[in-house]
Nucleic acid binder design. Structure first.
Ligand code: ZN
Ligand code: ZN
Ligand code: ZN
Ligand code: ZN
Ligand code: ZN
Ligand code: ZN
Length: 728
DNA sequence: GAGTTTGAAACT
DNA sequence: CAGTTTCAAACTC
């Protein structure tokens, strides 16, 4: 401790100048080990400090975001899960250019991505999407997917993917995994943050595939997506439903419930105001960017680049106070933090710190929100399943009545549970223990939305939305179940996921955990530094979605049972962290707890693939219609984005809740959320041993309450309204 | 943008 | 495990 403090102190001093010199306590170890590269190169330094912004940002994502938003809305209906997984993968740089890029780039996979990818890249076909779904539903689909995926992969990224996996692996200490075949090649700093949720059962293949697909996506997906989206969704939806069911079965074997539900539909991707949004990343990568990008950049709040960024002044971004760190991602240039050590350059430090924290609290990085999936009920596409997401630890609000974002439950769009110790709880998503009927809640939410005005905005989209909804759902299911998703965020340089070796033990039973993904990603402009994370498109795998999504929820489902293999992490690369081993064991036990950790990822050693249980990515797709972009300003704030990822828990506890089926509201409502602001890159992290992601306040994704329609999504605008509303 | 409020994280 | 301090976000103005 002392040391750490001392370090910190030093760091602080240094901060301004040279971050590099000082390292946090952790450094200590590093030093011992030798590694330390304390001073990391000067070259970056300048950049590091934050000063650089990319000139332009790629926020363009807007479009994509928008898209997503739409989707989200839809999703809301269906799924609460929004963002599913965001995984970020870094690529390895086998290619030279990439190297640096690694750090930067992270890809995110989201449901969207898939779709997107497929759509955009591969083909616009719906089919693809379906396929992607991996779901059991139809083999056909899969096949088709495969084909598509394959193509994609072949075309470009396949290799990359592989590489990534390796690289990632190397990066992280294998910890438990003996497996990692690859040794580390990479040295320093590349970090990836993954946010992904894995489902246990899922098929590894799928995952891989997905990833590839993602790669494909690149470019103009957005547009395509959009157009496609609807259709896709439809398809998806349909598929999804069945698929989901199937999936679930397959995954869980027995358990039916698992499907994911849409729990969280995330309504909004944005969770926090700040972060949200923007992603720009995608755009960048893609290159083209969409038009949107330019938008503003930096206004203060969001960074131009990225969307989210932290503003840590005293923690060097090495404590959970830092959203970036808590989310397992590296700070991006857009972060306004001072003396930040949460950068790839200090990877060692970061890792160590994480380990220390984990040692203190194994669940420190675990996803906060978990869902029980029990019901899956609805067969209809429309209905979503109710999701019962809740915070694992519960909130302890005393004065906000759980009506403001101060409340983590509220921020995640989940109702308070028995675990909450809040006083005077009035959480619109459900009061503690009161399990209100969903209907009520829904109404509340709706009310809220209306007030916010979200609905209107969304309405436009509504037409599409409906489709989206389905689509989203579909995504969820697809994604969720099997695929692991990985996101890479590309932040510029910064954003990367940090991996930790941590292991995450997912709850034994299948849980859904929501991970906080960072929705926002930060993008860094490539210009300044390097960039490379992605070389342009080729490398990136997933970005597409990313863009859009800024915030996504990530949901992961974990199966308890599934053998680790089953669950591979999607992100092969990304997940270095996880330890495969653990999962199972724990699984059995924990039922009781929800396990925070939700997702686990595993790598497959040889293959480089990860398998994760199942992971979903929920992100909503980014399709964004341009239209709403302008609104973006607020985006930042949006309240909602849900950043949380949700994991299912199997836990019994929940069960009770779960058991209650929710009366669900149907998703009918058109409201959707408006678009969320684009998130720039998302960085997610998995890492943490435990769960995965954790979200602090900020990053949490929302879970959607059972009903879909209502989602609280929030738009940026909305946020305002929310405030009002919320305000007391 | 400054200043206040808030509740989690960190610390004791 | 509780009580206190620290922290950065959420919120207010
Ligand atoms: Zn920070
Ligand atoms: Zn940061
Ligand atoms: Zn930082
Ligand atoms: Zn609360
Ligand atoms: Zn609560
Ligand atoms: Zn409450």
């Amino acid at each position: 401790m002392d040391m750490s403090q001392a370090l910190s102190e030093h760091a602080e001093q240094d901060q301004g100048h040279s971050m590099f010199e000082i390292k946090p306590a952790q450094v200590e170890k590093e030093q011992s080990s030798n590694k330390q590269s304390p001073i990391k190169c000067p070259k970056d330094e300048s950049g590091m400090t934050m000063g650089h912004f990319p000139e332009k940002k790629q926020c363009d994502v807007l479009e994509s975001q928008v898209v997503r938003a739409q989707e989200d809305y839809n999703e809301n209906v269906g799924a609460s899960l929004q963002g599913a997984l965001d995984n970020i993968v870094q690529r390895e740089p086998e290619a030279s250019h990439l190297q640096r890029g690694l750090s930067r780039r992270c890809l995110q996979f989201g449901e969207t991505r898939w779709k997107t990818v497929v759509n955009s890249t591969c083909s616009p076909n719906l089919m693809n999407n379906v396929t992607s779904s991996r779901s059991p539903a139809s083999a056909m689909e899969l096949e088709s997917l495969d084909g598509s995926l394959v193509d994609l992969s072949d075309s470009s990224s396949k290799k990359q993917t592989v590489n990534l996996s390796r690289s990632a692996t190397s990066m992280f200490p294998p910890r438990g995994n003996e497996k990692l075949p690859i040794t580390v090649s990479k040295p320093s700093g590349i970090g990836l943050h993954l946010n992904s949720i894995v489902n246990t059962s899922a098929v590894g293949h799928t995952t891989a595939t997905n990833i590839e697909s993602s790669n494909c996506s690149e470019s103009s997906n957005l547009v395509e997506k959009i157009a496609i989206t609807p259709k896709d969704r439809m398809l998806e939806t349909k598929a999804s439903l069945p698929a989901s069911a199937a999936t679930a079965d397959s995954l869980h074997n027995a358990e039916p419930s698992n499907m994911l539900q849409p729990v969280g539909h995330q309504t909004t991707p944005l969770n926090k105001r700040k972060f949200n949004p923007e992603h720009g990343y995608n755009v960048e990568e893609f290159g083209q960017v969409s038009p949107a990008k330019k938008k503003r950049k930096k206004s203060s709040s969001l960074d131009g680049d990225g969307c989210k960024r932290c503003n840590c002044k005293r923690t060097k971004c090495l404590k959970l106070y830092c959203d970036c760190f808590a989310a397992g991602i590296y700070c991006a240039e857009s972060c306004a933090c001072q003396g930040c050590f949460n950068r790839p350059e200090y990877e060692d430090t970061v890792i160590e710190t994480r380990q220390q924290i984990e040692s203190r609290n194994p669940n420190a990085f675990a996803p906060k929100i978990v869902q029980h999936v029990a019901e899956f009920a609805a067969e209809d596409g429309n209905q979503l399943m109710p999701s019962l997401a809740r915070h694992k630890r519960g909130c302890h609000c005393k004065r906000s009545m759980c009506l403001k974002k101060y409340c983590e439950c509220y921020q995640a769009n989940v109702g308070c549970s028995s675990d909450c110790r809040c006083e005077g709880c009035k959480n619109v998503y459900g009061r503690k223990e009161e399990y209100g009927s969903t209907g009520e809640i829904a109404s509340n939410i709706v009310r809220k939305q209306i007030l916010d005005g979200r609905i209107d905005d969304k309405l436009e989209m509504a037409a599409t939305n409906s489709d989206f909804l389905h689509a989203e759902l579909y995504d969820l299911r697809h994604l969720t179940p099997s695929t692991p998703s990985i996101q890479h965020s590309d932040h510029g340089k910064d954003a990367q996921v940090q991996f930790n070796s941590s292991r995450y033990v997912p709850s034994p039973e299948s849980d859904f955990s929501i991970l906080p993904s960072y929705a926002k990603s930060i993008s860094s402009p490539s210009n300044s530094h390097s960039n490379n994370m992605i070389p342009e498109k080729g490398e990136e795998i997933l970005d597409i979605d990313t863009c859009g999504q800024g915030m996504d929820y990530n949901v992961a489902m974990m199966d308890q049972f599934s053998p680790r293999h089953d669950a591979l992490v999607d992100i092969c690369e990304l997940t270095p962290l996880q330890n495969p081993s653990m999962t199972q064991t724990t699984s059995a036990s924990s039922k009781t707890r929800d396990w925070t950790g939700g997702s686990r990822l595993q790598l497959c050693p040889g293959s480089g693939c990860f398998s994760s249980g199942r992971s979903f990515r929920w992100r909503s797709s980014p399709i964004t219609p341009l239209t709403r972009l302008h609104e973006s300003k607020n985006q930042g704030h949006d309240t909602d984005s849900g950043l949380y990822d949700i994991l299912e828990d199997d836990t019994p506890e929940i069960l009770k809740e779960a058991s209650t089926p929710i009366t669900s509201v149907k998703a009918s409502s058109p409201n959707k959320k408006r678009v969320s602001p684009p998130h720039k890159h998302i960085q997610g992290l998995w890492s943490s041993s435990s769960g995965g992601l954790r979200s602090g306040r900020k990053f949490i994704l929302k879970a959607v309450p059972s009903f879909p329609p209502l989602t609280p999504c929030i738009d940026s605008k909305d946020s305002r309204t929310e405030k009002k509303d919320s305000n007391k």
